[in-house]
């Protein structure tokens, strides 16, 4: 049993935690739940394979701080962040700090299940293949100069209205550029845009 992969869910919200564990169980994935980062740190057995579903916003030690602690302890458990709407800035920080992925609340459950499955079956990132990287590079190359600029700003966690102000254009125009960026990158969410950007950044 020790080596069976387990999804560790750390979320302070009882309902979300309960729902997530039910979702995992419906997919026959073993789960362990923790109400806080500290609870996880004291109870987690390091040799346990699997992944960590981590809420960014929590009282006490928050998600980002826990990630830092794990990095320090050289725990290699892949981390998937759960973020609230509009927490892109935090999500970008998390990705830069080594998180595997982030998922915005309310969830795209399909994607969540897929990401978790990938994580625990291979313990590697599917996206982390050179072929995938080339594909992404090709998609980014199709962006106009303005679109690239806006993509960069989105990845920096800036909101539409902030971008509009900085570029001296209307938020509606930003919206259109943003839609175009997503379309060209074949991204379904902002997190996918961020992931693509980070991937290319690694190459560059």
């Amino acid at each position: 049993m020790q080596n069976e992969p387990v999804v560790h869910i750390v979320d302070d919200d009882d309902a979300v935690r309960d729902a997530l564990s039910l979702l995992m169980l419906s997919e026959d994935i073993a789960v362990k739940t923790f109400a806080s980062a500290d609870e996880f740190l004291t109870q987690h057995a390091e040799e346990q394979p699997g992944c960590l579903l981590l809420d960014v916003r929590m009282p006490g030690t928050n998600g980002l701080e826990l990630l830092d602690i794990l990095n320090e302890k050289k725990v290699t458990l892949p981390v998937i962040f759960i973020t609230g709407h509009g927490d892109v800035h935090m999500a970008v920080k998390a990705m830069k700090a080594g998180a595997l992925d982030f998922i915005e609340k309310p969830f795209d459950n399909e994607r969540l299940v897929k990401v978790v499955h990938n994580c625990i079956s291979t313990c590697t990132d599917l996206n982390d293949t050179s072929e995938h990287k080339r594909e992404i590079e090709a998609r980014i190359a199709r962006l106009t100069k303005r679109e690239k600029q806006i993509m960069g700003m989105l990845v920096d966690g800036k909101q539409n209205k902030v971008i509009a102000r900085e570029l001296g254009i209307s938020p509606r125009t930003v919206e259109l550029h943003r839609a175009k960026v997503m379309e060209k990158l074949q991204a379904h969410s902002l997190s996918e845009v961020v992931r693509s950007a980070l991937l290319v950044e690694e190459i560059a």
Binding site: D13, V16, L22, L23, K105, P106, F107, N109
Partner: peptide, 13 residues
């Protein structure tokens, strides 16, 4: 978002 996320996950499960 908290209850909405929970609802979404519960119903999907």
């Amino acid at each position: 978002n908290q209850p909405l996320a929970a609802i979404s996950i519960y119903s999907d499960a």
